[in-house]
């Protein structure tokens, strides 16, 4: 292994390693992204806390896009298949369930195994990560972009409390805006905090239940997929 050398001491040997535990995963994630680009497939990593309305938001979004692009969903949970079944029943798109076996996040290797050829038949694959604002942010899944859903009852201060999550997300969807009058949720403050973590982040307020704002999110996603596929075909033509 590179950077490894031996130091002899009295009765023990010290082997220097100096390696980040994220290094192998980051490399696997980059490989997966390169492969997806070659195939022109857009993988979105969608994260949030439990109960923020990820599945409902997905159903609304997929139903707006499924006639234009080929979509599949990968659900990652510690256990059960309720989400995968719900998505399939409500949208008709292919939906598979991954079990993380107790792990609190998905990594690039698990994502790659989960895809298992799925990427050959679709334009957009949405990975619904484990509900958790800490661990999924640390592990690059190999997705093209990261998005997260923050729901109004969770409070507008969450970007301050979970800095890494909001740093790695390209888009933040603020869900359940219909209940804003009942909570002390300050949308402008929330946007300010998000932009402290990531000045480039797109913020899209929605209500998945009534459908308000979902068009904007669907449009963002659609444009993302088309841009990625254009980049992909330009590079393919070059090579």
């Amino acid at each position: 292994m590179k950077n490894t050398y031996l130091r002899n001491m009295d009765s023990v040997k010290i082997i220097e390693i100096k390696k980040s535990v994220f290094e192998d995963n980051d490399r696997a994630a980059d490989q997966l992204r390169t492969e997806l680009k070659r195939k022109g497939v857009y993988l979105l990593n969608l994260m949030s806390a439990p109960g923020s309305g990820k599945t409902t938001t997905l159903i609304q979004t997929i139903n707006r896009l499924k006639d234009k692009i080929r979509i599949a969903v990968m659900e990652a949970d510690i256990d059960s298949d309720v989400d995968a079944v719900k998505i399939k029943d409500a949208t008709g798109v292919e939906s598979i369930q991954l079990h993380t076996g107790g792990m609190c996040h998905l990594d690039a290797e698990m994502t790659q195994q989960g895809l298992n050829g799925l990427e050959d038949r679709f334009d957009l694959i949405i990975l619904e990560n484990v509900g958790n604002l800490v661990c999924p942010a640390e592990f690059d899944t190999g997705a093209v972009k990261n998005a997260m859903i923050l729901s109004v009852p969770e409070g507008h201060d969450k970007p301050l409390k979970y800095p890494l999550m909001f740093t790695v997300c390209d888009t933040v969807v603020i869900n359940k805006i219909d209940v804003m009058p009942y909570f002390d949720f300050d949308l402008e403050k929330c946007k300010e905090y998000i932009h402290m973590r990531n000045p480039e982040a797109t913020v899209i307020p929605i209500c998945a239940k009534t459908g308000e704002g979902v068009d904007a999110f669907a449009q963002w996603l659609f444009d993302e997929v088309r841009q990625w596929q254009n980049k992909s075909s330009i590079e393919t033509n070059k090579s």
Binding site: N8, S11, V12, K13, I14, I15, E16, I17, K18, K19, S20, V21, F22
Partner: peptide, 12 residues
């Protein structure tokens, strides 16, 4: 922000 394996020590 490091989560790094610095070294391992093994018996001779």
């Amino acid at each position: 922000n490091e989560v790094e394996i610095k070294e391992i020590i093994v018996p001779e």
